[in-house]
Amino acid sequence: MDRFKKILIMGLPGSGKTTLAQALAPKLGAVWFNADAVRQNLNKELGYSLADRIEHARRMGWLCDQVAAAGHVGLADFVCPTPETRAAFGDAFTIWMDRIAAGRFEDTNRLFAPPERFDVRIGAEGAPEEWARRIASRLRGADAARLSGLACDAAEPMVSTS
């Protein structure tokens, strides 16, 4: 699977995941899966236990995998709070919305573990539209490098310094 075709925007509730996804998806022509909408329409039986969160992440990852397999970009925005949920989602270009210290749900705050690996970390500064432009440019550059036969990897993460 081409990890540049599967994108995870993750972070605490209220950190700006959906706002960034709204700005980024059209720039990439991505099929966007919002966790709240997927829960409401496809995963109604899942709650918020760790086991249910892992299953939700697995399903979100599978949806993105199907889009990527068809040659398009699959983008998901959701909390994805633990190493287990991130593993269940699968390998992806990961954007960590690290804009807030705590979200609106105490149980999620207690459960949330900052990711050890990410490609982009977004702090408090910068507008979502600017971040979307920068990320889209980076991903289009990765596509161009692969198409020209150059090996391209997400060498150094983009990190905001807030």
Rank of each mutant, 00 (worst) to 15 (best):
A23S: 09
A23Y: 06
L24S: 03
A25E: 08
P26S: 00
P26D: 00
K27C: 04
K27G: 00
L28G: 01
G29T: 15
G29H: 09
G29S: 08
A30Q: 13
V31Q: 14
W32G: 01
F33M: 03
N34Q: 07
A35L: 03
A35V: 04
D36L: 06
D36K: 06
A37C: 11
V38C: 04
V38H: 01
V38Q: 01
Q40D: 15
N41L: 12
N41F: 09
L42I: 11
L42T: 10
K44N: 14
K44L: 13
K44V: 15
E45Q: 14
E45L: 08
G47S: 06
Y48W: 13
Y48V: 14
A51N: 00
D52P: 01
E55R: 11
E55M: 06
H56M: 06
A57L: 08
A57E: 06
A57D: 05
R58L: 03
R58G: 05
M60F: 01
W62H: 15
W62R: 14
W62I: 12
L63R: 02
C64M: 03
V67E: 05
V67G: 02
A68E: 02
A69R: 11
A70P: 05
A70C: 09
G71A: 12
G71M: 10
H72A: 14
V73D: 02
V73G: 02
G74N: 04
G74P: 08
L75C: 05
D77R: 05
V79L: 08
V79F: 03
V79M: 05
C80P: 07
P83V: 08
E84M: 09
R86M: 07
A87N: 10
A88M: 06
A88E: 07
F89R: 02
F89H: 05
G90N: 06
D91V: 09
F93P: 00
T94V: 11
I95V: 14
W96H: 10
W96Q: 06
M97R: 11
M97F: 05
M97P: 03
D98L: 03
D98S: 07
D98V: 04
R99D: 04
I100V: 14
A101G: 07
A101D: 13
A101M: 09
A101F: 01
G103D: 10
G103F: 08
R104E: 10
F105I: 15
D107K: 13
D107Y: 10
D107A: 13
T108K: 09
R110Y: 05
L111D: 06
F112E: 14
F112H: 13
E116W: 00
E116V: 03
E116C: 04
F118T: 00
F118S: 00
D119V: 07
D119M: 10
D119C: 10
V120D: 04
V120Y: 00
R121P: 02
I122Y: 02
I122K: 03
I122P: 00
G123C: 08
A124I: 12
A124E: 13
G126N: 07
G126E: 09
A127C: 13
A132I: 03
A132W: 08
R134M: 08
I135Y: 02
A136V: 02
A136M: 03
A136H: 03
S137Y: 09
R138V: 02
L139K: 09
R140T: 04
A142E: 08
D143V: 11
D143Y: 10
D143Q: 15
A144C: 00
R146E: 15
R146A: 14
L147N: 14
